[in-house]
Every structure is written in structure tokens, then in C-alpha cells.
């Protein structure tokens, strides 16, 4: 065996993405929802890296940097919202936020 086929890298990215999506759908705790979002963003970044190394171009790694920036910004805003949710409702149930009324 000489080298990894590009399909295997993309299959790994698809597996991680669907795991994150499933977690996003069946979790109600906001902390787990944010972690599932991180898993999904990480899978997208992995797909970029697989593409970059398969064709030998540095653009994919530059795109990975932008994805990681986006993930950091998303985590910060999500965690700030989570602290507010915990402060107001004393729990992390996302269904409680549907009664926030603005």
C-alpha cells in the first residue's frame, strides 16, 4: 500500500460530520450542542486539508486557517450566550430559551 486514497480522507470527514450533526439534533444541553458544532466545523476543516494535500496546493491549508478562526469566534459567542442562559434560567436546557421573548 502506497499512500492514502483521497476517498478515505473524505469518508473520515463525512463520518465526523454526521456524528456531529446527530449530536446537534438529539442533544438539548447547550454545552453538548456547542461541542457538536465544533466537531462539525472540524470535519469541514479536515475535508479542506484532505483536498489540499491530495492536489498539493497550499490553498486548502489557508482555508483551514480561516475555518479555525470561524470556529474560535463561534465558540466564544456561543459560550457567552450559554453563560447568560445559565444565569437567567439556572439550567442549560435549550428549550428554556424558547420562552425568552426577545
Amino acid at each position: 500500500m502506497n499512500g492514502v486514497p483521497v476517498e478515505h480522507g473524505l469518508i473520515l470527514a463525512a463520518l465526523l460530520f454526521t456524528l456531529g450533526l446527530a449530536g446537534l439534533m438529539f442533544r438539548r444541553n447547550m454545552l453538548f450542542v456547542l461541542m457538536s458544532l465544533e466537531v462539525m466545523l472540524n470535519a469541514a476543516a479536515l475535508a479542506f486539508i484532505v483536498g489540499a494535500t491530495a492536489w498539493g496546493q497550499p490553498e486548502g491549508q489557508a482555508m483551514f486557517l480561516l475555518v479555525i478562526t470561524l470556529a474560535a469566534a463561534e465558540a466564544v459567542v456561543g459560550l457567552a450566550l450559554m453563560i447568560q442562559l445559565h444565569h437567567r434560567f439556572r439550567r442549560l436546557d435549550l428549550d428554556a430559551a424558547s420562552r425568552m421573548q426577545g
Partner: peptide, 16 residues
């Protein structure tokens, strides 16, 4: 979709 795409490339591990 991935398996029918026939990308056909093999990552040999050369550094970027």
C-alpha cells in the same frame, strides 16, 4: 457521492 466521484488521487504524504 464520495465513492462514485472517482477522484482517483492518492495522497502520498508530501509536505506542504
Amino acid at each position: 457521492t464520495i465513492l462514485r466521484g472517482e477522484a482517483g488521487e492518492v495522497i502520498s504524504g508530501e509536505l506542504i
